[in-house]
Design a protein around this nucleic acid. Structure first.
Lengths: 150, 150
DNA sequence: CCTTCTTGGTAGCATGTTGCAACCGTTGTG
DNA sequence: CACAACGGTTGCAACATGCTACCAAGAAGG
């Protein structure tokens, strides 16, 4: 069901990531999963997405190993969708998108949801791209290097 | 042209970011812009996308303030598309997607492009989500907090 | 049991978006 | 001046999306 051939510059990890996630709805599903949603109905109410679309996206996320379908934790016969380790590894992606949105699309004082440190309730530190030896890197400080088969 | 109402949970910065970028092609355009592409034809050859789609995406990225259309740097009469500061701020997003892809979709030794520190040619440090006081945070260490208008 | 509500879907159809190919005016090149 | 490359636009067919209606299996209540 996953097309897997939409972007054929497949040596680029960004393209593979994009292809694996599938579409934007999928990313918002993952965001909701980080926020604690587990059940079909929770995702549906939170996102307002059509049910057939949600069905397809959940299936493709499960197929891609981002979510897993597990028996419900409350003992009912229904199933729940939880993040796999691969899905949890998307955390920096979601945080990066969230910070970009906060910094560019909200007027000062405009209401918005915010991701905070559970321990102290403080905002997170802004993500930084660092070199191996810890220097802060701008886009110009980096370059793409082609790694051939070893 | 940007719908701006596709996701109506608009208080979430992630949703606004996703809506502002538009679609996955746009994100790959941004990736290519980080890699040095500037001209219409460069993006087209690199991505293999249809020209009408590329036209629409470039326009929407310019409208959204991610790219700017500037006179060509080589003196020709053509125009070039360069990242604005807002576009450059997407750097952590691209890096996060790249690292997720590298870690999850490539067999050891499989050829792939790699983003390296220009100074030493070393791989970048893996992105970390940090609290205000510098602790490394997992998804479970965070919670979403609703900020009302001040 | 029997009814009723909720959950988690599926099916059909109208609409919107994408991709492909052909075309075209402008710009650089020999 | 001819010719190729650049940077698009246009039309159309195919596909994906979203909406609504429908439905079967589980839970809940008596």
């Amino acid at each position: 069901m996953v097309t897997r051939t939409r972007f054929d510059d497949s040596e680029c990890p960004v393209a593979r990531s994009v292809d694996a996630i599938g579409d934007w709805w999928s990313l918002l599903i993952v965001r909701d999963a980080f926020d604690g949603s587990r059940r079909f109905g929770e995702f549906q109410r939170s996102l307002g997405v059509a049910k057939n679309i949600l069905t397809a996206r959940l299936r493709s996320l499960v197929a891609g190993g981002v979510l897993a379908s597990v028996p419900a934790s409350d003992g009912s016969a229904y199933r729940e969708y939880v993040l796999t380790p691969k899905g949890e590894a998307l955390f920096p992606v979601i945080v990066a998108l969230r910070q970009w949105g906060e910094q560019n699309f909200f007027a000062p004082g405009e209401p918005h949801s915010e991701l905070v440190d559970r321990r102290h309730g403080h905002r997170l530190r802004t993500l930084e791209v660092l070199s191996a030896d810890g220097r802060r890197l701008d886009p110009d400080d980096t370059t793409v290097h082609k790694v051939s088969a070893q």
